[in-house]
């Protein structure tokens, strides 16, 4: 005999999906992210959670979908649950970070190779780019690093949130996101030179140019200060 299903049950049925968290099935509302669904199911998260907004890269998750051979990866805090999702979280990604002193190195291929010789092993399989939740062309920045095109590597890798998914998928065992950090820091330090006005201002402050002004401002009463505040001019050079 078929069980009668009430309208309410039907609606609930529609609004929930079944997901499998580390092998166990759970019914959860379909509107949740993977992260919220795990909490809904009863997990109190410690690992694999951080900003909850797609910025910190703590919540890397891998999953399969029902009837699909592909393995997917994404951020648990930014991905909606789907029916039949079979998932697990990656508590963290063990990856070697080279230690260096930025003052003593130069932006070049040999620097990249010295600290991350494994980049020479890149097979150009592109598994890394495919898995990247930030849609970064990871392989290309690894290759740019190898070619010494540090500027291009740095720009391309700018949006990296260091989730580590690329490193997990890499057959050549390259810690791409650390490579990216090195490239960005070299580029930011040696190619993107700060304007002279910065040094100028630092000098002025160190020489005490503004001390008198501060003394005066700080001696004002709240009322007087308010007047100054209201009267201040606005310079808005739209060139920014």
């Amino acid at each position: 005999m078929a069980k009668a299903i009430s309208m309410r049950e039907k609606k609930e049925e529609l609004d929930t999906v079944t997901i499998y968290i580390m092998g166990q099935g759970y019914k959860v509302p379909s509107s949740l992210t993977i992260m919220k669904a795990m909490e809904y199911a009863g997990f109190k998260l410690k690992r694999g959670v951080g900003c909850r907004a797609g910025f910190c890269g703590a919540c890397a998750t891998v999953y399969r979908k029902l009837g699909d051979y592909k393995i997917y990866a994404n951020l648990a805090c930014q991905t909606k649950v789907e029916d039949g999702m079979y998932l697990t979280q990656l508590p963290f990604v063990p990856a070697n970070k080279a230690e260096y002193n930025l003052d003593e190195i130069k932006p070049s291929a040999s620097t990249m190779l010295r600290f991350y010789p494994e980049i020479a092993r890149c097979l150009s399989c592109n598994a890394c780019s495919r898995v990247c939740p930030q849609d970064i062309q990871v392989m290309d920045y690894v290759q740019y690093s190898l070619q010494g095109q540090i500027d291009k590597a740095a720009e391309l890798a700018f949006d990296c949130i260091q989730c580590g998914l690329c490193a997990i998928r890499c057959p050549a065992e390259i810690p791409q996101y650390h490579v990216a950090t090195l490239a960005r820091r070299l580029h930011g330090r040696y190619h993107m030179i700060a304007p002279d006005t910065l040094e100028q201002r630092v000098k002025e402050i160190e020489e005490g140019k503004y001390e008198k002004g501060f003394e005066e401002l700080m001696s004002l009463s709240e009322e007087e200060l308010k007047k100054r505040y209201v009267a201040r001019d606005f310079i808005d050079q739209k060139k920014a």
Partner: peptide, 8 residues
């Protein structure tokens, strides 16, 4: 864009 030729 290009990658290493793969000789290594």
């Amino acid at each position: 864009v290009f990658n290493c030729c793969g000789t290594v």
